[in-house]
């Protein structure tokens, strides 16, 4: 790595503050900038985000482009595109970094096409080799991983959560916060959000949960999932499910973890009555620690598990709830 690396982090916010993944991207961008004498730019879009802009500077951004406009909240790709692209063109970064979240995955490909930049999504490793950015990302449902480089001066990358160390907050650190006027022509926004249904309860967001308790065919019915719900509450986690359990209607499809469902990478993935088919593992193989509970000691899930319990979950799960609840008392 020799050339100074300039990176632009596009900050996603929630309740007026950047989401934790933004700190992870800033940590990575800061490291690149420090090692090469480069710079870290960040942009934040929407109303009422002054505190978020200051926080971005405190966590390592040299320059924060704050674009305030009511048209930019809530997020819509059509509304954000002109401003993010304008900042990117002005900064000319080697990497535009966007969190791999439902919002980031919606935004990033369009940014790449508008900038005519190469793009890689869901990256979990990144390095500079001979002045070229190389990123690694899982593919084939986690059965393989690919490393790609870019042929364009700017690359757009979406970064997976919990893969990079977050930048620490340094209260004394002040970057430039620049108010940038929006370039958005409201008439160019073709989509309109009619309404949304968000579930703010703990464990509602499967993809960002630190602990996931997932059930499969071994749950034997919707009642089994009622039991898992209680275990998830006791652990402060979210409930997930295998395709089998969702297809049988024991659990709503939004809870499905796997190749044809959601991808999770929590600190703890507790797989209950799940055999561990490839299609399921695709959605959870990057979990930090997997614990498997299954009656079949030969189930493939144990090949991925750090701890295994060969037991009937209908007896074990209530016992786990009891231990956790008695600890809490």
């Amino acid at each position: 790595m020799s050339n100074p690396v300039r990176a632009l982090v596009v900050a996603e916010t929630s309740d007026g503050q950047p989401i934790p993944l933004v700190w992870e991207m800033l940590g990575l961008a800061r490291r690149w900038a420090d090692e090469t004498g480069g710079a870290v730019h960040a942009c934040v879009l929407g109303d009422g985000l002054d505190a978020a802009a200051v926080a971005l500077a405190a966590r390592g951004a040299d320059r924060v482009h704050r674009i305030a406009s009511p048209s930019l909240s809530p997020y819509q790709a059509d509304a954000w595109l002109p401003d993010v692209c304008a900042v990117a063109r002005a900064v000319g970064p080697a990497a535009v970094m966007i969190g791999h979240t439902p919002q980031g995955a919606d935004l990033a490909p369009r940014i790449a096409f508008r900038l005519d930049a190469g793009i890689a999504t869901a990256c979990n490793r990144a390095s500079w080799t001979a002045g070229r950015l190389e990123v690694t990302r899982p593919c084939y449902g986690g059965k393989a991983e690919e490393t790609v480089s870019f042929r364009t001066a700017t690359a757009v990358v979406t970064v997976k959560a919990k893969c990079f160390a977050p930048a620490p907050a340094q209260a004394a650190r002040h970057g430039d916060v620049v108010a940038v006027p929006t370039v958005l022509d409201a008439a160019s926004v073709r989509t309109r959000v009619r309404g949304s249904r968000r579930d703010a309860s703990a464990g509602a967001n499967l993809e960002s949960a630190n602990i996931v308790v997932a059930g499969g065919g071994g749950m034997k019915g919707p009642d089994g999932f009622g039991m898992l719900e209680r275990l998830a509450v006791a652990l402060g986690g979210a409930v997930g499910a295998s395709r089998v359990a969702c297809d049988l209607g024991w659990c709503p499809p939004g809870r499905q973890v796997g190749l044809s469902g959601k991808t999770v990478a929590p600190e703890l993935y507790l797989a209950v009555g799940i055999s561990g088919a490839g299609q399921h593992m695709a959605g959870c193989v990057n979990s930090k620690t997997i614990v498997a509970i299954n009656t079949d000691a030969a189930a493939p899930i144990f090949r991925y598990a750090r701890y295994g319990v060969v037991a009937d979950c209908h007896a074990l799960v209530p016992a786990l709830i009891e231990v956790l609840e008695s600890k809490a008392r």
Partner: peptide
């Protein structure tokens, strides 16, 4: 193409 595939590998499972 805008990118180059440098490597494709099966990740090690050392659990």
């Amino acid at each position: 193409a805008r990118r180059t595939l440098e490597r494709l590998a099966v990740p090690k499972n050392d659990v």
